[in-house]
């Protein structure tokens, strides 16, 4: 029974994930695309939970959904209505063909890999304890084995914050000096 429920949840989440991803790349209005991405993130969080990654799921919702997507929506709202008339690439037609082929190739490769070499390997997940994926476990790893990654990540965030400020202030300076280059 519980297994069945898990399967159902998995299918719903997976379907929602794919549908929202397709929606993101299909909508003409970027606002709708951003909303679709929020749906994608939420369904991914569900999938993380199914994989016993509780902390990561929470982080996904908080960071991605609560911060990144909010930023996106702010910017889209600021830029105003940018509904595109012809969203698809107006570029050379071979781009389309090439892109489709490349995408299909990647898909095919991965599926082949999965099917052929990892078939037996992938179907034996390890046994896990209750504390798997808990904040305590994650935190311990961050502060012991992966301390460097932790510190570097914080620096990356700092750099991004500075960059954001610089980009924003630069734009404000030019605007105030009456520069309106189009």
């Amino acid at each position: 029974m519980a297994n069945f429920l898990v399967w159902v949840v998995w299918f719903v989440a997976a379907f929602a994930c794919l549908a929202s991803a397709l929606a993101v790349v299909s909508f003409r209005n970027p606002f709708y695309s951003a909303l679709a991405l929020i749906g994608n993130l939420a369904s991914l969080a569900v999938l993380f939970l199914l994989l016993s990654g509780e902390f990561v799921a929470a982080g996904q919702v908080l960071v991605y959904g609560g911060a990144v997507m909010v930023m996106f929506l702010f910017v889209i709202a600021y830029l105003g209505d940018r509904t595109e008339d012809s969203p698809r690439s107006g570029g050379p037609s071979w781009q389309v063909v090439g892109a489709v082929l490349a995408g299909g190739a990647i898909l095919a490769e991965v599926i082949v890999v999965v099917g052929l070499t990892a078939g037996g390997f992938l179907s034996k997940p390890q046994q896990i304890t209750r504390g798997f994926g808990s904040p305590e476990a994650i935190g311990r790893l961050f502060l012991t084995d992966h301390l460097l990654a932790f510190e570097v990540t914080s620096i990356v965030l700092l750099v991004a914050a500075v960059g954001g400020v610089v980009l924003g202030s630069h734009a404000r300076q030019l605007e105030s000096s009456g520069d309106a280059r189009a």
Partner: peptide
């Protein structure tokens, strides 16, 4: 690869 708006590309 296929969208023109940089916003959508970022998404």
């Amino acid at each position: 690869l296929l969208r023109r708006s940089p916003l959508i590309i970022l998404l």
